[in-house]
Design a protein around this nucleic acid. Structure first.
Lengths: 179, 179
DNA sequence: CCCTTATGATCAAACATTTGATTAGTTGGA
DNA sequence: TCCAACTAATCAAATGTTTGATCATAAGGG
């Protein structure tokens, strides 16, 4: 059985994508290797960048990555309804609800009932939250810059263009979105 | 205070990146806007793709995304030590250890002591695990293909090249890696 | 006006991840 | 040989995510 073949002894994080694509083509000749390579690579690159940002910038300052995203959104977009925060920071309403417990307990955000709709929550940063995002974002952006320097300016622009085109295709692809 | 400015009323998942980059430049003129846009876009694109794959393919079949990654690695690379599985599937050993409890309980993988080093674990797929990955991966790859179709073949190749170049820069950038 | 339906938020249970500590086994040097 | 240093794995506590259910409020049609 091919699935019991021993792995190459030198299999590493770096060599796995090439190995996996080649092996999958052997096991399943009908596989779309380009799509497979694209998604594998996309996932790896992002997870490296985010892990680095979270572990080297945000956790040492007392924020998780999701916590940072929420504070960041509130910093830039100002006080807003929780529903909007969830949407623009890319998380479900339930996940945000749980996350807000921590951020509120740590005194970074304020959770208030909206006046025009008593079901809705109005979120805003506290002064501590504002201080946290100011310092945190500067460090965050320095780390982002270090990553971005791997690419030429034109390459950065092209990468963003391709990612946006990929996202735009999600409608066509009938992708499932968070609710 | 600028951080209390009201957000535009039409702020959505799609318009947030442009808005955020522009706003951050107002608040902090020293910001590296290109790097910021790159990381924001990378994170969003990946999270959309992964969320779609997990929620439309893997969870309905009883696997989480991390669970799929481990089974997938074991399928392609064959039986191997847990340390290698953690490395190539991009998770810490502690995270893998916890994840294996679920996969073992569900009868998808086997956890055995290695003979040459009694500290080490030897991981392998059960027949159920093999069946799960065969069916799951076909559906997974179909969904990947739908996403990939948003790009021209040359664009897919270029996107992969740019992501690899970005990852390769991590050494230069002194990024922090999982252990 | 009332009732059905829709919407915003939260809850509950299961799961995965992080960091830091601990346990078990291996290795190399005094 | 023995012990210190290292390594593989697990544990523990805190955190965040998912799906599906529940609660409260709002909105619309008869």
């Amino acid at each position: 059985m091919t699935h019991n073949t021993a792995p190459p002894s030198d299999l590493t994080f770096w060599s796995f994508v090439d190995y996996a694509v080649q092996k999958a083509e052997q096991e399943l000749p009908s596989v779309n290797a380009d799509a497979m390579r694209l998604v594998l690579t996309l996932n790896r690159a992002t997870s490296m960048v985010i892990y680095d940002l979270e572990s080297s910038v945000h956790r040492p300052r007392g924020l998780t990555w999701p916590g940072f995203r929420v504070i960041f959104a509130l910093w830039l977009a100002g006080p807003m309804e929780a529903k909007t925060t969830a949407e623009i920071s890319g998380m479900s309403r339930a996940a945000l609800s749980a996350l807000l417990n921590t951020l509120e307990r740590d005194g970074l955000i304020l959770r208030e009932r909206a006046t025009h709709d008593r079901r809705a929550l109005q979120l805003s940063l506290t002064e501590d939250g504002y201080r946290a995002i100011l310092g945190g974002f500067r460090a965050h952006n320095r780390r982002e810059s270090a990553w971005a320097e791997a690419l030429e300016p034109a390459e950065r622009q092209e990468l963003v263009r391709l990612l946006n085109k990929l996202m735009a295709g999600s409608t066509e692809a009938k992708a499932k979105f968070r609710s």
